[in-house]
Design a protein around this nucleic acid. Structure first.
Length: 280
DNA sequence: ACGATTATTGCGTTCTT
DNA sequence: AAGAAAACAATAATCGT
């Protein structure tokens, strides 16, 4: 990890993990002689909008002091607004960018992602466009793939299905877009860890907290020893929950946890055995 | 419901062309 | 180098208790 003033970069893979982490804040400066009248010179910059948040909006109905406008002035303002909107996008690429970032923002908001993650997704979309990955693919697909990719890189427990539900694109298109994003941009997508599934499964099964914690410990332990590699993460997580429940009494059946993780009870048994070998 | 056994699938490796 | 094929591990299905 290397952090300079602008961005945080993983040195192994070169991924920009967090860009513009520093909030420069509004530029408070006073040009007046007395320091009490501070004026801000603009909104904070953001990566989440195509113009980095610098666009100007022309309001309706009232002037800057809140007074009603006369009909003639309203007409003039309406014309100004129209022409400004027309001139906002200089190129087709910029229109695409605005559209894509809008979609990214929408999906991120549906999934209730943090602002930091959302901005990373926006940044990823920008990279995708500058690497010319958009041609032949829909903007929506790339946007969804960007969100999913960032979730994967951050170890968030958002599944592809969740993102696809939030996006209005077929799953196959998102998968395709994500694959190209992954190969062309070399995303450091971490494997999905079983422990990420514990909370989701536990709440679905309405499992007491202490069992959930026990299951989580089991999962994390197994992850560190590497026995959980190469298996379906949700299945392994389900097995952890099953074993935790059994240790604390008899709360869960194999069929139940299997159902919740959409695997079969055979998978639960097989993982349970590997867990037992580990604990002794 | 659980366990043991057999069947299938998916995937990286290796052999061919 | 691209594709076919034999091989292996994970998961699913089935049957027995």
């Amino acid at each position: 990890m290397r952090t300079n003033t602008v961005e945080t970069v993983c040195e192994d893979c070169g991924l920009v993990i967090d860009e513009q982490k520093i909030d420069h804040g509004p530029e408070w400066r006073s040009f007046a002689t007395d320091e009490e009248t501070l004026n801000r010179t603009g909104a904070p910059l953001t990566v989440a909008r195509h113009d980095r948040g610098l666009s100007t909006k022309i309001g309706r109905r009232t002037d800057s002091n809140g007074n009603e406008l006369s009909g003639q002035k309203r007409q003039r303002l309406a014309r100004m607004r129209r022409e400004q909107t027309r001139g906002r996008f200089q190129s087709k690429a910029e229109r695409n960018l605005a559209h894509g970032l809008g979609e990214v923002r929408r999906i991120a908001s549906v999934l209730e992602l943090s602002d930091s993650v959302r901005d990373q997704a926006c940044q990823l979309f920008r990279s995708a466009q500058s690497e010319d990955l958009l041609r032949g693919r829909s903007i929506e697909a790339i946007a969804a793939a960007s969100v999913y990719g960032v979730c994967r890189c951050n170890g968030h427990s958002r599944l592809l299905d969740d993102v696809v539900d939030a996006a209005r694109v077929e799953q196959s298109r998102v998968t395709n877009a994500y694959k190209t994003l992954n190969t062309e941009l070399g995303l450091p997508a971490q494997p999905v860890r079983p422990s990420e599934f514990i909370p989701r499964l536990a709440s679905e099964l309405e499992v007491p907290v202490y069992i959930r914690q026990r299951a989580r410990r089991l999962a994390e332990q197994s992850e560190s020893t590497g026995v959980a590699s190469g298996v379906k993460p949700s299945g392994f997580a389900a097995a952890c929950l099953y074993k935790a429940g059994r240790e604390e009494g008899r709360w869960l059946t194999q069929a139940e946890v299997a159902e919740a993780a959409s695997v079969t009870s055979t998978t639960i048994r097989s993982h349970r055995d590997t867990l037992n070998e580990l604990a002794v």
